[in-house]
Amino acid sequence: MTDTLSKADRRYLEELAVHLQLRYVPGEQIGEILAEAEAHSAQSGEPLREAFGDPKEYAQQWAGAPARRRWWTAAAAGVPSGLGGVALAWGATGLAMDQRLPVLDLPSWWLIVVGTLLTVGVWASVPVNRIRDPRTGATSGRSRTTVVLLALGMCATVAAAGLVGALLR
């Protein structure tokens, strides 16, 4: 994106990028589509919405129907992610209330470790679709390292909440 864009055009490109990503258009192609729209608008003087129409409809033209991931692909990420969340919440609550795990008779922080491993593992393996501007080669969007750090930060926050609960007990 260049600095000469109007606020409305900037918002349009952001919306378009989101709709293209929702349709699993590869990041490199998204970069081309955005840069092409910007170049066209700069030459014609038309606002982007006028030249390209509703961003959702324009994104559909590039991707056809919204791409559907197979259910097991969604499950492969969703199930461990959900279990990780439950383990974290249970572990943090157990830590705050000084409870041991039933059946296994282990300290609650074990569940925090398991939840963290599951959550970080899922976020480290989901595909990252970074948008690449063909004019500058610059990439935008979160890198895998950022995504993993965010997941770790989230797990650390939950664990910290459990610890604070334990200290206040």
Binding site: T2, T4, A35, E36, E38, A39, A42, Q43, P134, R135
Partner: peptide
């Protein structure tokens, strides 16, 4: 291919 633009953004 992408070419630099005259003052504006590059163009395809």
């Amino acid at each position: 291919h992408w070419a630099p633009g005259d003052g504006g953004p590059g163009r395809k």
